[in-house]
Design a protein around this nucleic acid. Sequence first.
RNA 1: GCCCUGGUGGCGGAAUCGGUAGACGCGUCGGACUUAAAAUCCGAUUGGGAUAACACUCAGUGCCAGUUCAAGUCUGGCCCAGGGCACCA
Length: 830
Amino acid sequence: MKESYFPQEIEKKWQKVWEETGAFKTPDESDKPKYFALSMFPYPSGKLHMGHVRNYTITDVIARFKKAQGFNVLHPMGWDSFGLPAENAAMKNGADPEKWTVENIAYMTKQLKMLGLSYDWDREVTTCKPDYYKWTQWLFLQLYKKGLVYKKEAAVNWCNDCGTVLANEQVIDGKCWRCDSEVEKKYLSQWFVKITDYADVLLEDLDKLPGWGDNVKTMQANWIGKSHGAIFRFPVVDAPSGEKMEVPVYTTRPDTVHGITYLVVAPEYKDIEKLTTSENKEAVEAYRANARKMTEIERLSTERVKTGVPLGTHCINPFTGEKFPLWTADYALVEYGTGAVMAVPTHDTRDYDFAKKYNLPMKVVIQDAENPSDCKDAAYTEPGILVNSNEFDGMKNEEAKKAITEKAVKEGFGEFKTQYRLRDWLISRQRYWGAPIPVVYCEKCGIQPVPEEQLPVLLPKDVDFSVVGKSPITTSKTFLETTCPCCGGKATRETDTMDTFICSSWYYLRYSDAKNDKMPFAKDKVNHWLPVDQYVGGIEHAILHLLYSRFFTKALRDLGLLDFDEPFKNLLTQGMVLKDGSKMSKSKGNTVDPDEIFENYGADTARLFILSDSPPARDFDWSDAGVEGCYKFLNRVWRLVASNADNISICHPEFVSGSLKKDNDDLVRVVHMAIKGITNDISNDFQFNTVISKYRELTNAIYDWRGKKSELDAEDKSVLSFAIVSLLKLMSPVAVHLTEEAWHDLGGEGSIHEQPWCEWDENLAKASSITLVVQVNGKVKDKIEAEESSSQEDLKALALNSPKIKELTDGKTIVKTIVVPKKLVNIVVK
RNA sequence: GCCCUGGUGGCGGAAUCGGUAGACGCGUCGGACUUAAAAUCCGAUUGGGAUAACACUCAGUGCCAGUUCAAGUCUGGCCCAGGGCACCA
């Protein structure tokens, strides 16, 4: 064995061997139980960043640990390779997005291999390849047939810089998730996925996911935004056309219905023109035009002073017979509820602000019994007792919600209603580099889905990427013109492509059967491998990808394509990689290039360090000193093995507690404790930071032991071999190359990564003596060595006989003595 | 405003059930080896008091209370930081 540690040399060597021997191929058939470990697949942006390194290392260690524990582990990798950066690069450099993407994938694949990740590359999935997007299109058609995909004209989020529409989930604080520019509203006819059909089950089934963090689950619950309330319909008494009209509203506060003093409709409300008198028409039109011009950020700002204009018409409150005016104001949202709000200024802060500004009347209907408020200075939104509410007076408001809605149901002007905040998922993108939506438009037959046997609808090559203001795909003549699958006449293709989040909503299913050319996946294979046992990725997908994937799984289950409800059984959201306290980013110039770390220290150091300082879910602060420290530690392990190589043999000695020399017995115990501790730390929440501290403790203990021996006898050699071979095995999921090299140099058969996980013996992990802590009145006063087997009585006697304790308790009354077996005695004195 | 997560030395962080607070590491300081440096090894490192030095002693896990023989851990009430949602009626 070489004296010094040369990671660059040994890492290349073993990576080649593993590739040649197919070390990480996963058979579908096996006697072992399955385990599916998955990292969120990357966008091939060009190079790996440290966030990738962290993500993939965590999953790799989990996969290797589970494999050693006897599972048949599926650990695949792929590429989320459609999307705008490729197209932007194409526009900038005149290169083909496909070429750019393929080159990036090649480079990043090389980097992943350099990190020593145990992927089964035979199952690689690349979303931009026709053999994948064929099935994305096929799944689109299945959803279309099921009525879960539809086209409609709607106000949609438009990002001017990206030149495309966005889903609600992709608008963050009124800005584009990708380029951070302000999003505008546009009226366009677009394709939607009916995710709202699944709103309730998506919410309910969060309870079936104990392996997900509460943070992610509450984010999804908030996003789905379920609320309970009522719909009330208010008859209009003076519609200009003389027509009989009603305005329905959704409210979560039916208990306040007797306090309505006006009603607000959104500026985009569909019947607004019919509800406006000729005198008010001009002002209303001006207000609506202004609302259209505003950006989402301006419009949604809660800081903004509320504005609105009256429509001139009125409604009747069927509960009171009172007449109240209709207004339009942009604090009412057309997409939520019915697009109209019943305003109760006394019990809603928004209505209160608006009423104050426009001097609208107020009527108190709920009061705190002890401390009634007149609502002159602020709305009263707390629970209370109903007043001014006819037969409901004196009722508690929570009870009144039900009673009042029941009356509306009985009399036919309302009903109970459950409302969701979640909107349908807009999936059209006016871009080239995505999966084409497999639909054609025929003048005679209208919208026609492309027949399945004609899939994939391939992306055209004859496109001009220099066009501005429209999708490059529209410049392709070969693509655009086609024939109608229904009548055979002239037809044009849909030029929108799908949101890349569609591609990533089912990729994890494809790994179960990546090469199937008849189906997206075979049902038996997908049911065998899925759900994913452990999914690892960034928190930024808490809503986007994770919600869409859950929806897809449920929809495909309902289509009969698979038999499970949830795609990801356990989810680990890893923290960010920071440098000097802030997120690594090119703009801040605080990035660290993984290539440089591989070159200077080797992948094992990178892997060890990225796991070492913080638990996986927390943010991780990168420091050069930390990398150096991990490199030194690996050197220390190497020297320990190399300098003792002559005295080590690969063996599995069985030691009996107490039969060894004292120092040997102690070392054997330390090893067993390390095995126990490390196994538990990985099993419980993947606490790799404490795993690594235990590697260090074990290494230190072996050094200490060795430092006290000059000559080794047979027993010593056997104990040393046991300790070092155990250390190597325990470290093998993390320091994958070093341990493999050492294993071979010590004469190990096969690969260390094929070895079963170490087991510990509870008896050998136990010390024969314990340190008894003696407290007086709860404060530690003495520590005494005691037999592990001592009875409670013995421990008590031991404590009371300690000279120190005697001194402290002398002349005082012992009130009580508490004995915690094998640990502690607390003497309470007065 | 509502919801989630967290708050422990100079720093990252440890601490199964309530039972020795600060494991392991980084940094810093001191020492050994060396002509010297690198590498390596050894020691110290929560704060205050006390001591020639030990022994010893007091305080201490965001703040204030409580439960308990015993609280970083449990209960109640706050404060702060990070994240999510937000004119969602």
